[in-house]
Design a protein around this nucleic acid. Structure first.
Lengths: 331, 331
DNA sequence: GACAACTATGTTACACGTAACATTTTATTG
DNA sequence: CAATAAAATGTTACGTGTAACATAGTTGTC
């Protein structure tokens, strides 16, 4: 922390005021070309780095939005952030990123940190929040987008898809291909996992079938997928299909089939969720529900920035639907 | 936004000064219990959220460090960040996270953003930087840790491992198990990929063997692993081993072996890199070089915070070595 | 050449938590 | 209970970019 150059230092050097230097950065067209040139040189010479602390102190916009994702190792959220940055880059907003590890308590801490940096808006990927989080967000008075899911008690705006409907659709499709004893494989029992379970159960009941679930509270992983399938086969009779709460589990389960000589989809149909790359490397290719995560990111950021800029949104809830990978793991 | 409550608002309400309220947050033990209680209530009532902008303006520490990771969907970096947060949580530092997509230009922009927030230190995961990045960091005068790798031209401090040595060791091990025609599979041709190639080549030459590489500039993925192995088998004769620049490629390649009836490790030995969970779900289990990423995160944060707190480090370079998964994909 | 319209730059005030120092209040002790 | 130490609270000043308004300088037009 040696004393970094300030606008004043540059201004002094050139015998002008810091206001002109400030303008050079914020609206260069308002500075005379000759002055501009001089300032450019001085800026380079001093290695001036913009300091946004004073701007944060005024009530002005920080032109920064906070993004809280649950995990730093999940393609779903990296695609989401890519989508967000498409928009923020174009609108010259910055994003501050934080991750919650799927824990509402951690989310609360991270949101508090982001608010302390005076972000102009927030994008959250979870819909389960602590009471304090809800209070803070209300007090903060900034626009919030909850994304990925359609929460029952939205804080503000929502961009996502109906996971229950997607699961219902997927399982109905499996049943239509003549599978009867479909088991739901679940890990990390978060809200989205539960919603998919509800969709699964509804599809089973409506077809006159009995839902059967194996679940683990642990983080989902390939090895969990193997274990859960093994457990399903030991626990239930005549299992002929599995609906997996995500592709990690599905791929692990398909590995298990390979190792045990179980034919997919004839002996066992496998349906994944999210449509990650790895599913397409399997033989047969994994059929999986595709969530439009990049589109969700784009829409979320667009919406948020529009509201920050004072527009009123046409709607507060956007359901972006789902599709399927071209897989072969259900018949 | 709307006027959020300030310390002054709370102080006015209670007929005390904002200084006391400030102390309540920063060192509550210096505030009388009765006052503490009153402040706690007022804080809750107003929903006060700390505003760090003024503190950033003074020369005080921001107690925040910036972390730039290349990717948001790679377990290597999520483990690294976990390690970092072990320390930052204990020391009540915050982290601001940014991701560069492996692009030095993007890294430059993100570092500039982090510096504009007056971070007290930076942890970077890449060692290739633009000239402007190097200049900025020099001017900024804050401690910097480059991690994961041991760069030739370190900016400041380094915590990592020698990827060339690790690759050399891994390939030597494969050769010792009687493999002769080992091919290097590479994707996303970044520095670490190159370093591993050098280690691979050195091991091959020293054993009197000829290095053979197939590479793609695309992002590594399971499907790339399949493609690259296929390409290797078409291009080179008598291939009996592959050394993969990461586990994604290795797992894709092992899938390919399964699909094609190639026996691992007898027909083909497979060595991965990073030691991710998925490797252990394979049959046989993938043998892989384990990088101590969590330990690197811990050491990096520890070192950085010590320097921020004015200690001088015992050393500027820490090599944390490597190990292997207990795999069966090399004999 | 006088006035309008515009361009370029300057002036002033502000945002708000906190370090450093000063003062008041309470506790302790011989 | 006075004297001193310790605890609790108060006072003052500070940092730095920018909005809003003010002024000086320039160009254009009839």
């Amino acid at each position: 922390m040696t004393n970094r150059a300030s606008l004043q230092d540059i201004a002094d050097q050139l015998g002008i005021t810091k206001m002109t230097v400030s303008r050079y950065f914020r609206s260069p067209e308002k500075v005379a070309p000759a002055t501009r040139e001089k300032i450019a040189q001085a800026v380079k010479h001093y290695g001036y780095i913009h300091n946004r602390a004073p701007a944060l102190m005024s009530r002005a916009l920080s032109r920064t939005i906070g993004v809280v994702i649950p995990s730093l190792s999940n393609q779903v959220f990296s695609a989401l952030v890519d989508g967000i940055e498409t928009i923020t880059n174009a609108e010259s907003f910055d994003i501050l990123l934080a991750h919650s590890g799927y824990d509402p308590k951690v989310e609360e801490r991270k949101i508090e940190m982001l608010l302390s940096y005076q972000v102009d808006g927030l994008i959250l990927c979870e819909t389960e929040h602590t009471d304090r989080t809800r209070t803070m967000l209300k007090q903060a008075g900034i626009p919030v987008v909850e994304c990925m899911e359609l929460p029952e008690a939205p804080i503000d705006m929502v961009v996502g898809l109906d996971h229950k409907a997607a699961a219902f659709n997927a399982v109905t499709r499996m049943i239509a291909s003549d599978k009867q004893h479909i088991v739901y494989l679940a890990a990390r029992l978060d809200r989205r996992t539960m919603l998919r379970q509800q969709g699964y159960e509804q599809a089973m009941w409506e077809a006159g079938l009995t839902p059967q679930t194996v679940a683990t509270p642990f983080q989902s992983s390939f090895s969990q997928g193997m274990k859960l399938l093994q457990q399903a086969l030991e626990t239930f009779d005549r299992v002929d299909g599995i609906f997996c709460t995500n592709d990690d589990l599905a791929v692990g389960a398909m590995q298990y089939c390979k190792n045990e000589g179980i034919q997919v989809p004839d002996d066992l149909a496998v349906m994944g969720y999210n449509g990650l790359d790895i599913g397409l490397t399997m033989q047969p290719k994994l059929t999986s529900v595709v969530t439009p995560r990049q589109a969700i990111g784009i829409k979320s950021a667009r919406l948020l920035i529009d509201v920050i800029n004072g527009k009123s949104p046409s709607d507060k809830l956007f359901d972006l639907g789902f599709s399927y990978t071209e897989g072969e793991s259900i018949s």
